[in-house]
Design a protein around this nucleic acid. Structure first.
Lengths: 328, 328
DNA sequence: CTGAAAGCGCTAACAA
DNA sequence: TTGTTAGCGCTTTCAG
């Protein structure tokens, strides 16, 4: 025999297996004496409840699963941290699975979770169409942290990207900037909303929005900045798609001898570790990523408890002002 | 009834449950006709094998677990990536668990894995004493990615930190530097080895090693640099504990108007995203973190297959030269 | 509060 | 190649 079973513990403690089971699930209807005796035996034998057997018998797993698109991205790991905290508070175990940035990976990761039959799933994904999500939602309680058009099959939590852009435009115009350029990130997740928010906020103020193609990486920021600075009238402020892209902008500006923020102000998005570095010190939009995880888990728990009507939450970001922005 | 079971599939296909089981585990001894019929039924019913039942019955999980100290740290996520790749190749599922940077978290994370009875565990930890590791190793095949003194109970994979320091000293002395300072990180994981490697390499070359107290963060680099530059004879090159610390050094040097690398050369350690940024461009020591994960998983699989003698691997880092270092 | 007994859904001999 | 039949270790009635 390998690991000791409940029967072993019961025999050792001189009680029935059912009693041991009750103790293990700390039921209140066990006498203190019995409880102590059982616990002592369990401890002595090095007993460890067999989760497989337990879940099979009870039909529950007391576990929720999180699928993250990419562990390298702090966005997802902070999300996971929020999920972990909320799950721990609810006494649930957490299983993490990663899509390793590939769509096929996300599929596999979701399959794993579905096979595990976790009580519910938090989807921190990026690559998926709503359809795939729907299919998951059909099989288990699901909440997605993503910008969707409020599907009925699952709950969603997402950042108010447009509002983030609004905060940026507000900040820059208050500093006196009028020629403000946005380097976007095409159709990457969140990018269209940020772009739209930027364009609307500019129009609202009677300003012409300048938008350049870009992406969520340093190189894109660098080359977009190069093109921007070649304009007859270069912008006095640049709002990059995210912090990484803003870093590229910064590198380029330094390389051509432009001073930040005296000549050009720069704003990032995401408030990653980068933005806070003394050498960069980027003004940026902070998203409460842990809160995303926390709220999504809370919604998921409600679903698990039986709620069926979908809920959709929009979470508000805030601006963090650092030294990359200044008066025009 | 909820999800369909094997019996449902068997009934639907008009065969026995055992046959369905064989098909599900794709045994070769099933006729093509039966296989197709079963698969069709399974598909039609939306059958999904119940992992809990399967594992309970088979006594195996076909899963390995990874415990990571901290998902925010790219070191661990890249490690995990290597593990994931190797696990996938071996046809194993992967379960990730995080200690959320706290020792209590690591305990809980390991408990979760132990409870899941994964076939083996990869420990990507930082906070633990060898004792705790030993206890885990007693219960399941274990491999640790950590600097240990070659325990008998488990395999280990680790970076040759001392050699990394040697590479740095070699690079700097070849550039003509002789007054080289190291900002260390006390007893943080890996730090003592880096420090020792630095001191030995310097002594070997007849140079006096300058070592200042520090830590693995930006602030520590900043204040250590401040102290270093106040010396009567400031160093011409600074070897920081890691990239983050090097970033702090860089910020300080810029703030006092020192030019990098003309006045002072800077070297980091880890080759994180930071080091590659154009605005920082740090010379640093690269560790093949994915390889750590890969090798550790391969070792784990051998253990699972039955090997009992411990193996310990030391993996060699390499220097990545960027523009933060130059001739003296 | 305790004990007996019937499964949970699947695997793994062993027969047929 | 397919079917039969015990379990795997635990939960969960239901009587005592």
């Amino acid at each position: 025999m390998g690991q000791p079973t409940m029967d072993d513990v019961a025999a050792h403690a001189g009680v029935s297996r059912a009693l041991v089971s009750l103790v293990m699930r700390d039921s209140p209807r066990v006498s203190d004496r019995s409880r102590k005796k059982v616990l002592a035996s369990a401890n002595e034998l090095g007993y460890r409840p067999n989760v497989w057997a337990r879940n099979l018998a009870s039909g529950q797993t007391n576990t929720i699963g999180v699928m993250l698109n990419d562990l390298h991205n702090p966005y997802f790991t902070e999300l996971a941290e929020g999920v972990a905290a909320a799950a721990a508070e609810a006494g649930m175990e957490l299983l993490i699975t990663s899509g390793w940035q590939r769509e096929s990976g996300e599929h596999a990761a979701i399959e794993t979770l579905l096979n595990m039959r976790t009580d519910g799933i938090v989807l921190g994904a990026a690559r998926f169409s709503g359809e795939v999500f729907d299919e998951v939602a059909q099989q288990t309680p699901t909440v997605a942290v993503a910008n969707f058009d409020e599907p009925e099959s699952m709950d969603t939590v997402c950042n108010d990207e447009a509002h983030g852009s609004e905060l940026v435009v507000d900040h820059l115009t208050k500093l006196g900037h009028t020629r403000i350029a946005h380097i976007d990130a095409g159709n990457a997740p969140g990018a269209p909303e940020r772009r739209r928010g930027f364009m609307n906020s500019m129009s609202d103020r009677g300003l012409a929005p300048i938008v350049f193609d870009g992406d969520f990486n340093e190189h894109a920021g660098m080359s977009a900045a190069a093109n921007l600075m070649k304009l007859k009238e270069p912008p006095t402020a640049i709002f990059a798609a995210n912090d990484l892209s803003a870093t590229g902008v910064l590198s380029h500006l330094r390389s051509i001898g432009a001073r930040v923020p005296d000549d050009v102000s720069i704003v990032g998005y995401d408030d990653t570790l980068l933005a806070g570095l003394g050498a960069l010190s980027l003004t940026t939009v902070h998203q409460p990523r842990q809160l995303f995880g926390r709220r999504s888990t809370e919604l998921l728990l409600e679903r698990i408890e039986g709620r069926t009507a979908a809920k959709h939450e929009l979470i508000q970001p805030r601006l963090v002002t650092r030294s990359s922005t200044g008066p025009n």
